[in-house]
Design a protein around this nucleic acid. Sequence first.
DNA 1: TGAATAGTGTCTTTCAGACAGTATTGG
DNA 2: CCAATACTGTCTGAAAGACACTATTCA
Lengths: 248, 248
Amino acid sequence: MTEKPGQKAQQEGGRTAAGLDFPRPLTTVDVVIFTIQADALHVLLVQRGQGNSEPFPGAWALPGGFVDVAKDRDLEACAARKLKEKTGVASPYLEQLGSWGSAARDPRGWSATHAYYALMPASVAERALAADAQWFQILGERVKVKLAFDHDEILAAAVQRLRNKVEYTSLPAYLMPEEFTLPELQRTYEIVLGRPLEKSAFRTRMLSADLIEPVAKMRKGPNRPAQLYRLKAAKTPVYFTRTFNPPE
Amino acid sequence: MTEKPGQKAQQEGGRTAAGLDFPRPLTTVDVVIFTIQADALHVLLVQRGQGNSEPFPGAWALPGGFVDVAKDRDLEACAARKLKEKTGVASPYLEQLGSWGSAARDPRGWSATHAYYALMPASVAERALAADAQWFQILGERVKVKLAFDHDEILAAAVQRLRNKVEYTSLPAYLMPEEFTLPELQRTYEIVLGRPLEKSAFRTRMLSADLIEPVAKMRKGPNRPAQLYRLKAAKTPVYFTRTFNPPE
DNA sequence: TGAATAGTGTCTTTCAGACAGTATTGG
DNA sequence: CCAATACTGTCTGAAAGACACTATTCA
């Protein structure tokens, strides 16, 4: 971090302090917020304003926006702020996904976005959505609408990362409500992975991991009741040493 | 990406086009370049200029610097450029690590860096080093000198990521010279992981992966010669479905 | 009683861990 | 021959895959 870019006629991002008078890229943060609804993985999108001077008017996009150097202490705080603004709540899981930056991705100029992804239970996500926000079902790695900027690509990367980590971590637990049964947790794994899992191996793995604890209640139904569990206090995800059903 | 940050007196990063007249963070890219030297993991550091008006004069830092909106098409190209400037060569492996951004990490103001990490063979890395660059041995997750900015933290994250991925991928292959033996590859795994591996299981895993192919040569020594291998044409890393010796 | 789902047990397969044993060079 | 390292084989154990079996509710 020593040299500075070749001096050019002062364009966007300039400042006249010593050594910093060169153009700066735009800096944004975007958040891919996942939940499970109606037995399917969903992502939260917001519709961009119509007909103003900004790019992609009316298009659907990931929630996000410019870093506010006055409001945001750091990138994660910025992501948490965007998340709260659109959902009304904090997320039980928020992880950095990566960054995308290029001259071409935003018509307003060279820009770089720091992408995060978040998981939240459907029960939480149903309340307090922003007016311009809506849940979209994930089909493959995409949604049925064309997204603004390179958000299609970011979304696809988030889905891939989620599916990959679900193979060997307890991440789906963050998509569950406060109390849930083992078959419900297994169903969530299956929805994210898109394939069925063996009940026996699944139960063994989950119960031997230091992840969930039973509560003194059962889920009633038209059949044998199921034991209810909740996440243990330690909220960090559990990593397993093997994936589930190794694909081929 | 719709709202813009609250308007303030125009500070650094301002521009007077419609809707973009708010301060922009500084945008940099840093690269953690690893190699193996003298049976130990090493990282490339550069010494910052002495006594100029920039922060951390004379301190060691990761190679990197500001994104140049005129030169760099995208972030990865910027990282590849920094890498080439310091080592004289391209790296066989370059992956994004994450981003670090906050108001505090750079005394010049709110800044965000996009961090990458790279792997290269010692043979390549020995030639054509920049004058201000030097290899430092990794001790634990650090080096023996205090680094500029938050580069200690970024380096620690890179070492963790590398160690973690080495458990279930073929990444160490990118630290090997053109031709190498299986015991040499195993030694590289052991250096990165910091623990011995079982010879038998290691050989079985490597040979059954579609990763390396024998060349019609042997490594001679004062003992039984060893078969030489090279990486197969497909250069993408191989992912295994289990880790090596699950710790504890 | 039967449908439906929860939960367990059992056998097989896979692969790492451990480690002994064989192979091939130079001295 | 011996030392040294390359390489192979064999036994064991842990955990997943497959799937049958038992358990408990409501209608």
